[in-house]
Structures are given as structure tokens and as C-alpha cells.
């Protein structure tokens, strides 16, 4: 993913007027069908990356769709200016009633957290009510003080959590430091559903201070991953003609 535009301050600021959706390509057949309606490359197949700005009902493209912002804009400044212009057309939009931004599964969330080099927050309970209680508490942090700094997931069953080290039996809010390949994770903090706002805030701050960022560059990361036999199995077949993504040399750094 080209992060060279999306990590720029002007673009981040402009994005506050939008609902920002980042999907994981090839991880949902349903979402893949939708993505194909937004953009298909020369290959005629769903490619690794898709980028577009859509109307609030998701039906209408407000800019030409492509693989990345790099294809559509001359730079982050132009991207931010375009976003601000589009947002001005929706000046009557309401405040977003945000929900807990969980990814589809803990397995995927661990990987995405590793990709973003962020800690992962998992709500865990077999009780729907208890999960809802925890998600409500965390939602305000996900969209305000700690905006964009954590990946989120939820789990009904401990079988999804077998990859975590240091997990207590009773904890309901779990903050995890993923390994560089997002295959396992070390529990940094864990709280039960009665945790206060201060306790949650402290746990999140602690995670940001102690989280270990990956130090290896893309070629080293990929070479080491291959040597160790670490490969990602997608939910649906990869159809990108590049067979799994850009080479390390093609990647642009933020």
C-alpha cells in the first residue's frame, strides 16, 4: 500500500470530513465483489490495491478510481485540496456516530496491526452484552485521543487467541504487541469489563510507550519471512497479475 500520501498531515486533516474505510483485499469474497465494482485494472481482475472516493451511499465515484492516490494526484497537497473540495459539497453532513472499528477476525487484525506497526486492542468475551460494554468504552478512544494509533478486533472464543502470549483467563480488554509478521502477539495490558476510563487510558498509553516498532526494511522483512516459512493464506485467491504485491523496490515509503 502506498502510504506516502495517506500519512501526510494535510491528508490526515482532510480525512476527518470523510468516513475512511480501509479494506483488506482478498480477505472477504463479499468485499471483493464490491471492490470489483469500484476498480478493475488492465488485468480484468481485482488487483492488490484499490483507491477511490465515493458518495455516502457507496454507489457513486466522486473521483476516478485507481490503484492508489499516487495514480490520481500529483502529490499529497493536491490530494488534500481535492478532498477538501469534495467535503465542501457535503457541508450539511452530520457528526459520525462512530462504532467500534473491529476488523473481521483476530488473525487478520494481528497481521494488519503488524503492517501498521501498531498495538492491537481485542475485546474478548463469550457474552454479547459484555463485549458491547467493552466496545462502548473503547469506541471513544478509537475515534478521539488515540485516533489512528491502534488496530481493533473482538473475539467470542479463546481459540482465536491461542497466538497470544501472557493472556489471563478472565480479561476482557486485551492490548497486544504483534510480532513483526503478525502471527503472534505479546499481551501488554489486560483489563476486565469493569475497567474505568482512567485504567483504559493508562493501558493504551503504556502500549504506545512500550510497543516495539519493526526496524527491518521491506526487502529484509520479506527475505527473513520467506526463510522462516512465514506465508499469509488469503481467504480468497489472489488475482493480482503481480502475484502478491509490489516487489520491495517498488514500494514507496511514507
Amino acid at each position: 500500500m502506498d502510504e506516502s500520501f495517506l500519512s501526510k498531515a494535510k491528508v490526515i486533516k482532510a480525512a476527518e470530513a470523510f468516513v475512511c474505510v480501509r479494506l483488506a483485499t482478498y480477505e472477504s469474497a463479499e468485499e471483493a465483489q464490491f471492490l470489483k465494482t469500484v476498480f478493475i485494472g488492465r488485468s480484468g481482475q481485482l488487483e492488490n490495491t484499490v483507491f477511490c472516493i465515493l458518495s455516502p451511499d457507496g454507489q457513486r465515484r466522486l473521483i476516478r478510481a485507481g490503484r492508489s492516490p499516487l495514480q490520481m494526484f500529483s502529490g499529497p497537497d493536491q490530494m488534500a485540496a481535492t478532498m477538501n473540495r469534495i467535503a465542501a459539497n457535503y457541508s450539511g453532513a452530520r457528526q459520525i456516530k462512530h462504532s467500534y472499528p473491529a476488523l473481521a477476525t483476530v488473525r487478520l487484525a494481528l497481521n494488519v496491526a503488524a503492517c501498521d506497526q501498531q498495538p492491537l486492542v481485542i475485546v474478548r468475551s463469550s457474552s454479547e452484552d459484555e463485549r458491547q460494554q467493552c466496545k462502548s468504552k473503547l469506541t471513544k478512544y478509537a475515534w478521539s485521543d488515540f485516533r489512528g494509533q491502534f488496530t481493533f478486533a473482538e473475539s467470542k472464543s479463546d481459540t482465536e487467541l491461542a497466538a497470544l502470549k501472557g493472556l489471563n483467563e478472565q480479561s476482557n480488554i486485551i492490548v497486544v504487541d504483534p510480532d513483526p509478521y503478525g502471527q503472534t502477539g505479546v499481551v501488554l495490558s489486560q483489563l476486565d469489563s469493569s475497567a474505568t476510563d482512567d485504567e483504559i487510558s493508562d493501558a493504551l498509553n503504556l502500549a504506545l510507550l512500550t510497543h516495539q516498532e519493526r526496524t527491518s526494511e521491506a526487502p529484509v522483512h520479506i527475505t527473513n519471512g520467506r526463510r522462516r516459512g512465514i506465508f499469509w493464506k488469503t481467504q480468497i485467491p489472489v488475482t493480482d497479475p503481480g502475484r502478491g504485491g509490489p516487489t520491495p523496490n517498488e514500494r514507496r515509503r511514507p
Binding site: 474505510v21 455516502p56 457535503y90 503488524a114 510480532d179 509478521y181 520467506r226 488469503t234 520491495p248
Partner: peptide, 20 residues
């Protein structure tokens, strides 16, 4: 909310290696 959507999709692996 009636707000437009900034949509990005990307595969969470590079040459099938996860974490990137």
C-alpha cells in the same frame, strides 16, 4: 452521517509474507 467515503483496499502481505 451523509459523509463521503475515502476508500482504500490493500493486501496485508507483500509477496505473500505478512506484516507488510
Amino acid at each position: 452521517s451523509g459523509r463521503p467515503i475515502l476508500l482504500v483496499s490493500a493486501a496485508p502481505h507483500c509477496h505473500q509474507v505478512p506484516g507488510m
